[in-house]
Amino acid sequence: MSDVSVGLNEKRGLSLAPEAPGGLASPRDYIALLKPRVMSLVIFTALVGLVRAPDHVHPVIAFTALLCIAVGAGAAGALNMWWDADIDAVMTRTKGRPIPSGRVTPQEALAFGLTLSAFSVVVLGLLVNALAGALLAFTIFFYVVVYTMWLKRSTSQNIVIGGLAGALPPMVAWAAASGTVSLESVILVAIIFFWTPPHFWALSLYRADDYARAGIPMLPVTAGPDETRRQILLYTLFLVPLALSPVALGEAGLAYGIVAAVTGLGMLALAVNVYRRRTGTEAVRAAKKLFGFSILYLFLLFATLLAEAVVAGI
Protein backbone atom coordinates (compact mmCIF):
# COMPACT_ATOMS: atom_id res chain seq x y z
CA MET A 1 0.00 0.00 0.00
CA SER A 2 1.34 3.46 -0.82
CA ASP A 3 2.45 5.90 1.89
CA VAL A 4 -0.47 8.15 0.94
CA SER A 5 -2.99 5.33 1.45
CA VAL A 6 -1.43 4.32 4.77
CA GLY A 7 -1.44 7.90 6.01
CA LEU A 8 -5.03 8.40 4.96
CA ASN A 9 -6.17 5.28 6.79
CA GLU A 10 -4.19 6.21 9.92
CA LYS A 11 -5.85 9.62 9.86
CA ARG A 12 -9.27 7.98 9.75
CA GLY A 13 -8.32 5.88 12.76
CA LEU A 14 -9.13 2.53 11.14
CA SER A 15 -7.16 -0.08 9.26
CA LEU A 16 -7.67 -2.06 6.11
CA ALA A 17 -7.06 -5.72 5.48
CA PRO A 18 -3.66 -6.40 3.90
CA GLU A 19 -3.53 -5.69 0.22
CA ALA A 20 -4.03 -8.62 -2.08
CA PRO A 21 -1.22 -9.81 -4.33
CA GLY A 22 -1.66 -8.79 -7.94
CA GLY A 23 -4.02 -10.83 -10.08
CA LEU A 24 -6.30 -11.97 -7.25
CA ALA A 25 -9.29 -9.85 -8.28
CA SER A 26 -11.91 -11.38 -10.57
CA PRO A 27 -14.39 -9.67 -12.91
CA ARG A 28 -17.02 -10.30 -10.23
CA ASP A 29 -15.03 -8.14 -7.80
CA TYR A 30 -15.00 -5.22 -10.21
CA ILE A 31 -18.73 -5.64 -10.79
CA ALA A 32 -19.19 -5.55 -7.01
CA LEU A 33 -17.31 -2.23 -6.91
CA LEU A 34 -20.05 -0.78 -9.13
CA LYS A 35 -22.72 -1.52 -6.48
CA PRO A 36 -24.98 -3.30 -8.99
CA ARG A 37 -28.09 -3.22 -6.78
CA VAL A 38 -27.84 0.54 -6.44
CA MET A 39 -27.07 0.80 -10.14
CA SER A 40 -30.23 -1.13 -11.02
CA LEU A 41 -32.35 1.43 -9.13
CA VAL A 42 -30.51 4.26 -10.87
CA ILE A 43 -31.13 2.73 -14.30
CA PHE A 44 -34.79 2.16 -13.56
CA THR A 45 -35.52 5.67 -12.28
CA ALA A 46 -33.48 7.15 -15.13
CA LEU A 47 -35.50 5.13 -17.63
CA VAL A 48 -38.68 6.65 -16.22
CA GLY A 49 -37.25 10.14 -16.62
CA LEU A 50 -36.18 9.34 -20.17
CA VAL A 51 -39.55 7.92 -21.24
CA ARG A 52 -41.63 10.64 -19.60
CA ALA A 53 -39.64 13.49 -21.16
CA PRO A 54 -41.72 15.34 -23.79
CA ASP A 55 -39.31 14.79 -26.68
CA HIS A 56 -38.98 11.41 -28.36
CA VAL A 57 -35.34 10.43 -28.52
CA HIS A 58 -33.66 8.06 -30.98
CA PRO A 59 -33.19 4.58 -29.47
CA VAL A 60 -29.42 4.76 -29.92
CA ILE A 61 -29.27 8.07 -28.05
CA ALA A 62 -31.57 6.68 -25.36
CA PHE A 63 -29.35 3.62 -24.92
CA THR A 64 -26.24 5.79 -24.81
CA ALA A 65 -27.78 8.01 -22.15
CA LEU A 66 -28.84 5.10 -19.94
CA LEU A 67 -25.46 3.42 -20.37
CA CYS A 68 -23.60 6.56 -19.36
CA ILE A 69 -25.86 7.15 -16.36
CA ALA A 70 -25.38 3.53 -15.28
CA VAL A 71 -21.60 3.71 -15.71
CA GLY A 72 -21.49 7.03 -13.86
CA ALA A 73 -23.46 5.53 -10.97
CA GLY A 74 -21.12 2.54 -10.89
CA ALA A 75 -18.08 4.82 -10.96
CA ALA A 76 -19.43 6.77 -7.99
CA GLY A 77 -19.97 3.47 -6.17
CA ALA A 78 -16.39 2.39 -6.82
CA LEU A 79 -15.01 5.71 -5.56
CA ASN A 80 -17.28 5.44 -2.51
CA MET A 81 -15.84 2.00 -1.75
CA TRP A 82 -12.30 3.32 -2.25
CA TRP A 83 -12.77 6.11 0.27
CA ASP A 84 -14.82 4.06 2.74
CA ALA A 85 -12.66 0.93 2.68
CA ASP A 86 -11.52 1.56 6.26
CA ILE A 87 -15.02 1.68 7.72
CA ASP A 88 -16.24 -1.08 5.42
CA ALA A 89 -13.62 -3.32 7.02
CA VAL A 90 -15.22 -3.05 10.48
CA MET A 91 -18.89 -3.22 9.51
CA THR A 92 -20.52 -6.64 9.35
CA ARG A 93 -22.62 -5.66 6.34
CA THR A 94 -19.65 -4.48 4.25
CA LYS A 95 -16.51 -6.27 5.42
CA GLY A 96 -16.76 -8.76 2.56
CA ARG A 97 -16.50 -6.07 -0.11
CA PRO A 98 -13.56 -6.35 -2.57
CA ILE A 99 -11.23 -3.78 -0.95
CA PRO A 100 -11.47 -4.64 2.77
CA SER A 101 -11.34 -8.35 1.92
CA GLY A 102 -8.09 -7.72 0.05
CA ARG A 103 -9.21 -8.84 -3.40
CA VAL A 104 -8.88 -5.36 -4.96
CA THR A 105 -6.33 -2.75 -3.89
CA PRO A 106 -7.41 0.82 -3.09
CA GLN A 107 -5.29 2.11 -5.97
CA GLU A 108 -7.02 -0.21 -8.43
CA ALA A 109 -10.46 0.85 -7.20
CA LEU A 110 -9.52 4.54 -7.44
CA ALA A 111 -8.22 4.19 -10.99
CA PHE A 112 -11.28 2.15 -11.97
CA GLY A 113 -13.70 4.72 -10.54
CA LEU A 114 -11.95 7.76 -12.02
CA THR A 115 -11.71 6.16 -15.47
CA LEU A 116 -15.40 5.23 -15.55
CA SER A 117 -16.39 8.67 -14.23
CA ALA A 118 -14.51 10.46 -16.99
CA PHE A 119 -15.82 8.07 -19.64
CA SER A 120 -19.47 8.43 -18.62
CA VAL A 121 -19.44 12.23 -18.37
CA VAL A 122 -17.48 12.86 -21.57
CA VAL A 123 -19.48 10.40 -23.67
CA LEU A 124 -22.83 11.69 -22.37
CA GLY A 125 -21.79 15.30 -22.92
CA LEU A 126 -20.44 14.76 -26.43
CA LEU A 127 -22.88 12.21 -27.84
CA VAL A 128 -26.10 13.34 -26.12
CA ASN A 129 -25.95 16.92 -24.82
CA ALA A 130 -23.90 19.15 -22.56
CA LEU A 131 -26.63 19.68 -19.95
CA ALA A 132 -27.00 15.96 -19.32
CA GLY A 133 -23.22 15.56 -19.11
CA ALA A 134 -22.96 18.44 -16.64
CA LEU A 135 -25.75 17.04 -14.45
CA LEU A 136 -24.10 13.61 -14.42
CA ALA A 137 -20.76 15.17 -13.46
CA PHE A 138 -22.47 17.06 -10.63
CA THR A 139 -24.19 13.86 -9.45
CA ILE A 140 -20.91 11.94 -9.28
CA PHE A 141 -19.15 14.86 -7.56
CA PHE A 142 -21.96 15.26 -5.03
CA TYR A 143 -22.02 11.57 -4.13
CA VAL A 144 -18.26 11.11 -3.90
CA VAL A 145 -17.03 14.43 -2.51
CA VAL A 146 -19.98 16.03 -0.73
CA TYR A 147 -21.61 12.88 0.65
CA THR A 148 -18.88 10.24 0.92
CA MET A 149 -15.88 12.39 1.83
CA TRP A 150 -17.65 15.04 3.91
CA LEU A 151 -21.22 14.46 5.09
CA LYS A 152 -21.14 10.73 5.82
CA ARG A 153 -18.60 11.06 8.65
CA SER A 154 -19.48 14.52 9.91
CA THR A 155 -23.26 14.82 10.39
CA SER A 156 -26.32 12.76 11.19
CA GLN A 157 -27.99 14.53 8.26
CA ASN A 158 -25.66 12.70 5.88
CA ILE A 159 -28.46 10.67 4.32
CA VAL A 160 -30.81 13.65 4.06
CA ILE A 161 -28.45 15.94 2.17
CA GLY A 162 -26.45 13.22 0.46
CA GLY A 163 -29.66 11.64 -0.80
CA LEU A 164 -29.75 14.28 -3.54
CA ALA A 165 -27.14 12.33 -5.49
CA GLY A 166 -29.29 9.22 -5.61
CA ALA A 167 -32.34 11.28 -6.55
CA LEU A 168 -30.87 13.03 -9.60
CA PRO A 169 -30.76 10.23 -12.27
CA PRO A 170 -34.34 10.90 -13.55
CA MET A 171 -33.41 14.54 -14.10
CA VAL A 172 -30.18 13.57 -15.88
CA ALA A 173 -32.17 11.28 -18.19
CA TRP A 174 -34.85 13.92 -18.73
CA ALA A 175 -32.15 16.39 -19.76
CA ALA A 176 -30.63 13.77 -22.05
CA ALA A 177 -33.96 13.37 -23.86
CA SER A 178 -35.09 16.99 -23.98
CA GLY A 179 -32.07 19.18 -23.32
CA THR A 180 -34.02 20.87 -20.51
CA VAL A 181 -35.09 20.48 -16.89
CA SER A 182 -38.83 20.67 -16.16
CA LEU A 183 -41.17 20.68 -13.18
CA GLU A 184 -41.99 16.99 -13.61
CA SER A 185 -38.31 16.04 -13.50
CA VAL A 186 -37.93 18.11 -10.32
CA ILE A 187 -40.88 16.24 -8.77
CA LEU A 188 -39.32 12.88 -9.65
CA VAL A 189 -36.13 13.98 -7.93
CA ALA A 190 -38.08 15.26 -4.91
CA ILE A 191 -39.95 11.97 -4.46
CA ILE A 192 -36.69 9.99 -4.31
CA PHE A 193 -35.06 12.66 -2.14
CA PHE A 194 -37.77 12.53 0.54
CA TRP A 195 -38.07 8.74 0.26
CA THR A 196 -34.38 8.25 1.08
CA PRO A 197 -34.34 9.23 4.81
CA PRO A 198 -37.16 6.92 5.98
CA HIS A 199 -35.77 4.15 3.80
CA PHE A 200 -32.19 4.32 5.15
CA TRP A 201 -33.11 5.29 8.70
CA ALA A 202 -35.28 2.17 8.93
CA LEU A 203 -32.18 0.16 8.00
CA SER A 204 -30.01 2.09 10.44
CA LEU A 205 -32.40 1.39 13.32
CA TYR A 206 -31.46 -2.30 13.32
CA ARG A 207 -27.89 -1.71 12.13
CA ALA A 208 -27.08 1.01 14.69
CA ASP A 209 -24.35 -1.03 16.40
CA ASP A 210 -22.62 -1.55 13.06
CA TYR A 211 -22.63 2.18 12.31
CA ALA A 212 -21.48 3.05 15.85
CA ARG A 213 -18.57 0.61 15.60
CA ALA A 214 -17.49 2.25 12.34
CA GLY A 215 -17.84 5.76 13.76
CA ILE A 216 -20.54 6.84 11.30
CA PRO A 217 -22.88 9.42 12.87
CA MET A 218 -26.14 7.97 11.63
CA LEU A 219 -29.21 9.42 13.33
CA PRO A 220 -29.87 6.42 15.67
CA VAL A 221 -26.26 6.70 16.87
CA THR A 222 -26.23 10.46 17.51
CA ALA A 223 -29.86 11.21 18.43
CA GLY A 224 -31.11 7.83 19.54
CA PRO A 225 -33.70 5.42 18.12
CA ASP A 226 -36.75 7.32 19.38
CA GLU A 227 -35.79 10.52 17.57
CA THR A 228 -35.03 8.45 14.48
CA ARG A 229 -38.53 6.96 14.62
CA ARG A 230 -40.01 10.45 14.92
CA GLN A 231 -38.03 11.68 11.93
CA ILE A 232 -39.05 8.64 9.88
CA LEU A 233 -42.70 9.41 10.57
CA LEU A 234 -42.31 13.11 9.74
CA TYR A 235 -40.58 12.44 6.44
CA THR A 236 -43.18 9.83 5.53
CA LEU A 237 -45.99 12.28 6.30
CA PHE A 238 -44.40 14.66 3.80
CA LEU A 239 -43.50 11.99 1.25
CA VAL A 240 -46.98 10.49 0.80
CA PRO A 241 -48.75 13.68 -0.39
CA LEU A 242 -45.67 14.66 -2.39
CA ALA A 243 -45.92 11.37 -4.28
CA LEU A 244 -49.53 12.27 -5.15
CA SER A 245 -48.59 15.71 -6.51
CA PRO A 246 -48.05 14.53 -10.13
CA VAL A 247 -51.78 13.73 -10.26
CA ALA A 248 -52.76 17.13 -8.84
CA LEU A 249 -50.50 18.85 -11.38
CA GLY A 250 -51.89 16.85 -14.28
CA GLU A 251 -48.62 15.05 -14.96
CA ALA A 252 -49.85 11.56 -14.02
CA GLY A 253 -53.08 9.67 -14.54
CA LEU A 254 -55.66 7.79 -12.51
CA ALA A 255 -53.67 4.56 -12.35
CA TYR A 256 -50.73 6.34 -10.78
CA GLY A 257 -53.02 8.16 -8.36
CA ILE A 258 -54.52 4.89 -7.14
CA VAL A 259 -51.13 3.21 -6.75
CA ALA A 260 -49.63 6.23 -4.99
CA ALA A 261 -52.60 6.47 -2.60
CA VAL A 262 -52.76 2.77 -1.71
CA THR A 263 -49.01 2.26 -1.34
CA GLY A 264 -48.70 5.60 0.45
CA LEU A 265 -51.18 4.44 3.07
CA GLY A 266 -49.14 1.27 3.47
CA MET A 267 -45.93 3.27 3.83
CA LEU A 268 -47.55 5.54 6.41
CA ALA A 269 -48.99 2.61 8.39
CA LEU A 270 -45.57 0.98 8.59
CA ALA A 271 -43.95 4.26 9.64
CA VAL A 272 -46.52 4.61 12.43
CA ASN A 273 -45.80 1.03 13.45
CA VAL A 274 -42.07 1.81 13.64
CA TYR A 275 -42.89 4.86 15.77
CA ARG A 276 -44.97 2.80 18.18
CA ARG A 277 -42.80 -0.33 18.44
CA ARG A 278 -39.78 0.79 20.43
CA THR A 279 -38.31 -2.24 22.19
CA GLY A 280 -37.31 -5.82 21.58
CA THR A 281 -37.81 -7.96 18.52
CA GLU A 282 -41.04 -6.16 17.62
CA ALA A 283 -39.10 -2.93 17.07
CA VAL A 284 -36.55 -4.68 14.85
CA ARG A 285 -39.29 -6.44 12.90
CA ALA A 286 -41.16 -3.17 12.36
CA ALA A 287 -38.04 -1.43 11.04
CA LYS A 288 -37.24 -4.33 8.69
CA LYS A 289 -40.80 -4.31 7.33
CA LEU A 290 -40.63 -0.60 6.61
CA PHE A 291 -37.23 -0.93 4.96
CA GLY A 292 -38.43 -3.76 2.72
CA PHE A 293 -41.74 -2.12 1.83
CA SER A 294 -40.08 1.20 1.05
CA ILE A 295 -38.22 -0.44 -1.83
CA LEU A 296 -41.47 -1.86 -3.20
CA TYR A 297 -43.17 1.52 -2.70
CA LEU A 298 -40.66 3.44 -4.82
CA PHE A 299 -40.61 0.72 -7.46
CA LEU A 300 -44.40 0.72 -7.83
CA LEU A 301 -44.56 4.51 -8.09
CA PHE A 302 -42.01 4.67 -10.88
CA ALA A 303 -43.23 1.51 -12.59
CA THR A 304 -46.72 3.02 -12.83
CA LEU A 305 -45.34 6.29 -14.21
CA LEU A 306 -43.41 4.26 -16.77
CA ALA A 307 -46.47 2.18 -17.72
CA GLU A 308 -48.64 5.27 -18.16
CA ALA A 309 -46.03 6.87 -20.42
CA VAL A 310 -45.72 3.71 -22.54
CA VAL A 311 -49.49 3.33 -22.89
CA ALA A 312 -49.87 6.99 -23.80
CA GLY A 313 -47.25 6.60 -26.51
CA ILE A 314 -48.86 3.56 -28.13
Rank of each mutant, 00 (worst) to 15 (best):
L233W: 01
L239A: 00
A176H: 05
M149D: 09
A132H: 10
T228D: 05
R153W: 06
S154Y: 15
T155R: 04
I192C: 02
T236P: 13
R207V: 04
M218N: 11
A212W: 13
F238G: 03
V172L: 08
G133F: 01
L188T: 06
I216D: 15
F141P: 13
V189A: 05
F200C: 10
L136C: 11
F238W: 06
S156A: 15
F193V: 00
R153I: 02
G166S: 09
V160T: 08
I192Y: 11
R153S: 01
F141E: 13
R230G: 15
W150T: 06
L168T: 02
A165D: 15
L203Q: 01
F194H: 02
L135V: 01
A243M: 08
G133D: 02
A132G: 09
V145W: 08
H199S: 08
Q231E: 13
I191G: 00
L188N: 09
L237V: 13
L168Q: 01
W150H: 11
G133K: 05
R230S: 08
T222L: 00
S156C: 14
L151V: 03
M171S: 12
V144I: 06
G215L: 07
M171C: 08
P217E: 06
A223D: 10
A177L: 07
R213T: 13
G224V: 07
V172M: 09
V144E: 08
S182H: 14
L234N: 12
R213Q: 12
Q157Y: 12
Y147C: 10
A137R: 00
A134G: 15
T180R: 14
Y147K: 12
T148G: 05
L234T: 13
L135T: 00
L205K: 01
L136D: 10
G215C: 09
L168D: 01
P170F: 02
D209P: 11
T196F: 03
F138D: 03
V240W: 01
F200K: 07
F200T: 06
T180H: 14
I191K: 00
L234D: 12
I140D: 03
G166F: 03
I187W: 08
